[in-house]
Nucleic acid binder design. Structure first.
Length: 200
DNA sequence: ACCCAGGTGGCCC
DNA sequence: GGGCCACATGGG
């Protein structure tokens, strides 16, 4: 699969940056424990349109309250969950989304591997990016995640004109080996690079 | 005081 | 299918 622009982009980013740090240290870790998978799932909702710093404040609140798990969240209920995740922004909405997601995942925990993308997308608050983030980073499914940083990079490098989610996902997946580890690292590097460019 | 951040749902056309 | 707005906080 070498010799295409997508894979070359990955190689460039790998050369440019060290191993993923911070959040990506966990998200790109393989394999993950059950608790670590749950951390990723919770973080995937909380990080929507929000700085990771704010997500950490919310995650710490969950830890301190002893509900840093899907089971803890599902037992807590939306009303008590909301104030804990307040720092992550949009907290009333996210509390609803996270609660129903926790219940859904727990119900299907025995066959997490069988969870379909379409099932996640039926849940309120889970669009393509969040659903794919869960599939890729929590469940180790080879699904490429597209986000705003990916769009900016594709545009900047003139890799495509169509910037729709489905088109870009297909573009990346067709030009890469179907390897969840590669997808995990690549997306992390894209985000790290995107944040870095903002500072320049 | 303003502007931004890994998005998503609900409108409208 | 695309454009616009609401959702909300913490940090630069």
């Amino acid at each position: 699969m070498a010799g295409n622009k997508i894979f070359e982009l990955y190689q460039d980013l790998r050369e440019k940056y060290n191993s993923p740090q911070g959040q990506w240290n966990l998200w790109c870790q393989r394999p993950k424990t059950k608790n670590e998978r749950e951390e990723v799932i919770i973080g995937a909702i909380l990080t929507q349109r929000t700085n990771w710093k704010n997500v950490e404040l919310a995650l710490n609140n969950l830890k301190k309250a002893g509900v840093y798990s899907l089971k803890g969240i599902s037992r807590l209920g939306v009303k008590k969950l909301a104030p804990l995740i307040r720092p992550s922004g949009f907290y009333q909405a996210k509390a609803k989304y996270l609660f129903q997601l926790a219940k859904f995942i727990l119900k299907n925990y025995d066959n997490l591997d069988k969870i379909k993308r379409g099932q996640l997308l039926e849940l309120k608050g889970l669009g393509p990016e969040t659903a794919d983030s869960i599939l890729l980073y929590a469940l180790d499914k080879p699904v490429f995640v597209i986000d705003e940083y990916t769009r900016r990079l594709v545009k900047e490098k003139n890799l495509a004109k169509n910037l729709s989610y489905d088109f870009l996902q297909k573009l990346f997946e067709e030009n890469l080996k179907k390897d969840f580890r590669l997808y995990q690292d690549f997306h992390a590097l894209i985000v790290i690079d995107g944040k870095n460019i903002n500072k320049e």
